[in-house]
Amino acid sequence: MLKGLGALGDMGKMMKAAQEMQTKMAELQDELDTIIVEGEAGAGLVRATATAKGELKSLEIDPKVFSPDDKEMAEDLILAAIKDTQARASKRAQAEMGKLAESMGLPADMKLPGL
C-alpha cells in the first residue's frame, strides 16, 4: 500500500515501532511494581523488600540488633539493608529493560527511556 511512497513508508514503520515500544514500556513499568526483590545486611539480621522500581515494601529486623549500647550499629544495618535492596531493584529493572530491548531487536544493554 505504501510501496511507492519511499521514505514515507519507512516513516510509517518507524512510527508503528515507536508506538509498540511505548506500549511495551508502559507494560514493563506496571510489571516492575509487581516484581519483589529482597536485600539484607548483617548476615540477615536486617532484611528489606522492595519492588523492582525501588519502592520499599517491608523491613524485618532481628531483635538481636537492638542493643541499647550500640544504636549506631542498628542504624547502619538498617541503612545497609535498604541500600542493598535498592541496588538489587535497580539491577532487576535493568535486566527487565534488557529483555524488552532484545525482544524488539535492540541491543540488551541499550539504555531505554523510562527508568
Score class of each variant (00 low, 15 high):
residue 3 K to F: 15
residue 10 D to M: 08
residue 15 M to K: 15
residue 16 K to W: 01
residue 16 K to L: 03
residue 17 A to I: 01
residue 18 A to M: 15
residue 18 A to Y: 12
residue 18 A to N: 10
residue 19 Q to C: 02
residue 19 Q to P: 03
residue 20 E to A: 09
residue 21 M to D: 06
residue 22 Q to R: 15
residue 22 Q to F: 02
residue 27 E to V: 10
residue 28 L to R: 06
residue 34 T to W: 07
residue 35 I to F: 08
residue 36 I to V: 14
residue 38 E to N: 12
residue 40 E to G: 12
residue 43 A to R: 15
residue 45 L to P: 02
residue 46 V to R: 11
residue 46 V to N: 03
residue 48 A to D: 00
residue 48 A to Q: 01
residue 54 G to K: 01
residue 56 L to H: 00
residue 57 K to L: 14
residue 58 S to F: 01
residue 60 E to G: 07
residue 60 E to V: 07
residue 60 E to H: 09
residue 63 P to D: 14
residue 64 K to P: 07
residue 64 K to T: 09
residue 65 V to S: 03
residue 65 V to K: 02
residue 66 F to W: 06
residue 67 S to L: 12
residue 68 P to W: 00
residue 68 P to V: 03
residue 70 D to N: 13
residue 73 M to V: 05
residue 75 E to S: 13
residue 75 E to F: 11
residue 77 L to K: 02
residue 78 I to Q: 05
residue 80 A to F: 02
residue 81 A to C: 05
residue 85 T to Y: 01
residue 89 A to E: 02
residue 90 S to R: 13
residue 90 S to P: 04
residue 98 G to I: 06
residue 99 K to G: 12
residue 100 L to E: 07
residue 103 S to Q: 12
residue 105 G to C: 09
residue 107 P to E: 08
residue 107 P to A: 06
residue 111 K to M: 11
residue 115 L to T: 08
